[in-house]
């Protein structure tokens, strides 16, 4: 019982746990991307940058204002939502009537500009952000030693994903969102302020990215490039799950994080490409994604 496939259980479990932590971030980020793409038809390439800005916001709050982790968890999503709202109002609003490509270009541009600003300000070396004292310990699960903070990240992100899923699929507000995703003009003809919905939805998606950034800050190096590093994988996750599918984004985010972790143990050389291999296979056999609807 101490080895599986010739690998010590604690090693395997540890890597799977890391995979689950990464998967949690993939899920939260791809969820925001899916919601934004569904309603705004914008492929938000600046999503990773917003995640990075969320992590830095927590760092700045702590180092410049002495605001701790738990307060950051509440404040940063609100701040990032306001950033998102400003971006939507000032920039995205003007290009909805144009091809997808323009939204992609605009958000890439925004990502590069912000990355440049953060590199100028903080350098590319990276900052460290401590886990809160109450979660700094470890728990012995018998088969592995679990750092408490990692357990918390997985729980918090699963909770957030479930709450978002519930909001969209089971509430009246979510029904507006689903309907506006299908046919925004008719929803507006029912008297619903669709332009405001677009603004708030973008703000919400960015708040999720910011929240993921705060959750990630204690487990990774906070660097200006942390967003670019993760965003390509997250796009692959969205494609695998099915563009615009809420459940698909969550499930494939978690699953691919686990798969990456497993690959790190079994065949480390492939761990950074396995997601893209899966993406290629999915595109080959189910082009709409695992949870996407075929047109």
């Amino acid at each position: 019982m101490s080895e599986i496939f010739g690998i010590p259980v604690p090693v395997l479990a540890g890597q799977l746990m890391l995979g689950l932590v990464n998967g949690s971030f993939y899920a939260m980020l791809s969820l925001g991307l899916a919601v934004i793409f569904g309603l705004l038809n914008v492929i938000n390439f600046s999503h990773g940058t917003m995640y990075m800005m969320g992590a830095y916001a927590a760092w700045m709050l702590m180092n410049w204002l002495g605001v701790g982790y738990w307060w950051s968890l509440a404040i940063v999503p609100v701040v990032m939502a306001l950033v998102g709202i400003a971006v939507e109002r000032l920039f995205l609003r003007w290009i909805y009537h144009l091809d997808h490509l323009y939204g992609l270009l605009l958000t890439i541009g925004f990502a590069w500009v912000m990355e440049g600003v953060y590199r100028d300000q903080f350098g590319s070396g990276g900052q460290s952000y401590p886990a809160p004292d109450s979660l700094a310990g470890v728990t012995d699960l018998g088969f592995m030693i679990l750092p408490d903070y990692r357990g918390w990240v997985v729980l918090a992100s699963l909770g957030t994903c479930f709450a978002t899923w519930y909001l969209i699929e089971r509430t009246r507000l979510g029904a507006y969102l689903r309907a506006a995703t299908e046919n925004p003009r008719i929803v507006q003809a029912f008297g619903i302020n669709v332009p405001l919905m677009l603004t708030l939805t973008y703000g919400f998606g960015i708040a999720l990215a910011g929240l993921a950034g705060v959750l990630a800050a204690p487990v990774i190096q906070v660097t200006p490039l942390m967003g670019s590093n993760v965003i390509i994988v997250v796009f692959a996750v969205v494609v695998i799950g099915g563009l615009g599918s809420i459940l698909g984004a969550i499930v494939s985010g978690i699953a691919l994080g686990l798969l990456e972790g497993l690959t790190k143990v079994l065949y480390p050389e492939a761990s950074s490409t396995v997601v893209f291999v899966v993406m290629a296979l999915v595109l080959l056999f189910k082009p709409a994604g695992l949870f996407g609807k075929e047109e």
């Binding site: 029904a175 689903r178 309907a179 995703t181 299908e182 046919n183 003009r185 008719i186 507006q188 003809a189 029912f190 008297g191 619903i192 302020n193 669709v194 332009p195």
Partner: peptide, 24 residues
Amino acid sequence: MPTHRIAALGLGYCPEERAIFSTL
């Protein structure tokens, strides 16, 4: 006026394509 404000004046629009939502 934007569309949603016009609707709020008490207009109900039933489009030719009916626009029934498949996700609802």
